[in-house]
Measured scan of single mutants.
Amino acid sequence: GPMASDKRPRTAFTAEQLQRLKAEFQTNRYLTEQRRQSLAQELGLNESQIKIWFQNKRAK
């Protein structure tokens, strides 16, 4: 629909990254900035991508 703007492409996470994020989520529903930074480095992701993933996951 018209609401779907092309400005922010959805990140396609790899299965491996998703597995890691899910495991982290089961341990911590809320990430500290430090955890998020190390996860971002570990997974080669953007911190904001991880932050948003957690927000979306909590919203469900």
Rank of each mutant, 00 (worst) to 15 (best):
R20M: 05
Q49C: 11
R29P: 13
Q17A: 05
Q17M: 05
E47K: 04
K7T: 14
A15C: 12
K7R: 07
L31K: 01
A59C: 10
F25M: 02
E42S: 05
E47L: 04
L39K: 00
Q41H: 09
K7H: 13
D6H: 03
A59F: 08
I50R: 01
K22P: 00
N46C: 06
N46L: 10
D6W: 00
R35Y: 07
T11G: 12
I52F: 09
Q55E: 08
K22M: 13
G1E: 14
E16I: 10
S38K: 12
A40P: 01
P9W: 05
R20K: 08
A23D: 10
A4W: 14
E42F: 03
E24W: 02
E24Y: 03
L31S: 02
G1H: 04
Q37S: 10
W53E: 00
Y30I: 08
P9S: 05
Q55I: 10
K51V: 11
L18Q: 06
W53R: 00
E16M: 12
R36S: 11
S48I: 14
S48W: 14
W53Y: 07
T11S: 10
T11W: 14
Q34I: 10
A59L: 11
N28P: 01
L39A: 00
G44N: 11
A12T: 12
D6Q: 05
R36C: 09
L39Y: 01
E16Q: 13
Q49T: 12
R29S: 06
I52T: 11
A59Y: 07
K51P: 01
R10C: 15
Q49S: 10
G44E: 05
K7S: 13
N46Q: 13
L43T: 07
P2L: 04
R35S: 05
E47S: 07
N28H: 09
R20E: 02
L43R: 00
E42Y: 03
K22S: 10
T14W: 02
L43C: 03
Q19E: 09
R10T: 14
R10I: 15
A15T: 11
T11E: 12
F25W: 06
R58N: 08
Q37L: 11
L39M: 04
E33L: 14
G44K: 10
R8G: 15
L43F: 04
K57P: 03
K7I: 12
Q17S: 03
A40F: 02
K22Q: 12
Q37T: 11
Y30L: 07
K60Y: 05
S5W: 00
A59N: 11
K60I: 09
A59T: 08
E47G: 06
S38G: 09
Y30A: 05
A23R: 09
N56V: 13
E16V: 09
L18C: 07
N46W: 06
L45H: 02
Q55T: 09
T32P: 07
R35G: 06
K57A: 11
Q26G: 06
D6N: 05
Q34H: 08
M3E: 15
G1P: 15
R8Y: 14
F54D: 01
P9L: 05
L21K: 00
E33T: 13
R20Q: 04
R10W: 14
R35T: 06
T14H: 02
S5P: 15
I52Y: 09
Q41I: 14
Q19F: 09
A4R: 04
R36Q: 10
I50F: 01
K22D: 08
E33V: 14
N28K: 05
R35C: 04
R29E: 08
R58P: 02
K60R: 09
P9E: 09
Q19S: 13
P2F: 03
E47Q: 07
K7C: 15
Q41R: 13
E33A: 14
A40D: 00
S48P: 04
K7A: 14
Q17R: 02
A40T: 03
K7Q: 14
A4N: 12
E47F: 03
S38P: 01
Q41Y: 10
E16H: 13
T27Q: 12
N56L: 13
I50S: 01
T27P: 01
T32Y: 03
T32K: 04
F54A: 01
R58Q: 06
L31E: 05
L31I: 08
L45W: 01
Q34A: 10
R58E: 05
F13M: 07
R20Y: 04
N56D: 07
T32S: 11
Q55W: 13
Q17L: 03
R8N: 15
Q34K: 12
Q55D: 07
P9G: 06
K57G: 05
R8M: 15
K57M: 14
S48K: 10
E42K: 03
E16D: 09
K60E: 11
A15G: 06
R58C: 06
K7F: 11
A4Y: 14
P9K: 08
E42P: 00
K51S: 12
Q26P: 01
I52V: 09
T14Q: 03
L43P: 00
A23M: 09
N46F: 09
D6L: 02
E24C: 03
R20D: 01
F54T: 00
F25C: 02
I50P: 00
L31P: 13
E42V: 05
A12L: 13
P2H: 15
E24L: 04
Q41E: 10
S38L: 13
L18I: 10
E33N: 13
M3W: 01
G44L: 05
Q19H: 08
A12P: 14
A40Q: 03
D6P: 05
Q17V: 06
R8P: 15
Q34T: 13
L43N: 01
F54Q: 01
L21F: 02
E47M: 05
A59W: 13
R8T: 15
Q41A: 12
F25Q: 02
N56Q: 13
A40K: 02
F13D: 01
A59Q: 09
N28E: 04
K60P: 05
R35Q: 10
A15L: 09
A12V: 13
L31N: 02
K57I: 06
A12N: 12
L21S: 00
R35I: 05
R36W: 06
L45Y: 01
K22I: 12
Q26M: 11
A15I: 09
R36E: 07
G44I: 03
L39E: 00
K22R: 12
L31F: 03
I50N: 00
M3I: 15
F54M: 03
R36H: 04
L39Q: 00
R36P: 02
F25L: 03
F13N: 01
Q37I: 11
I50V: 08
S38M: 11
A59D: 06
T27R: 14
A59S: 11
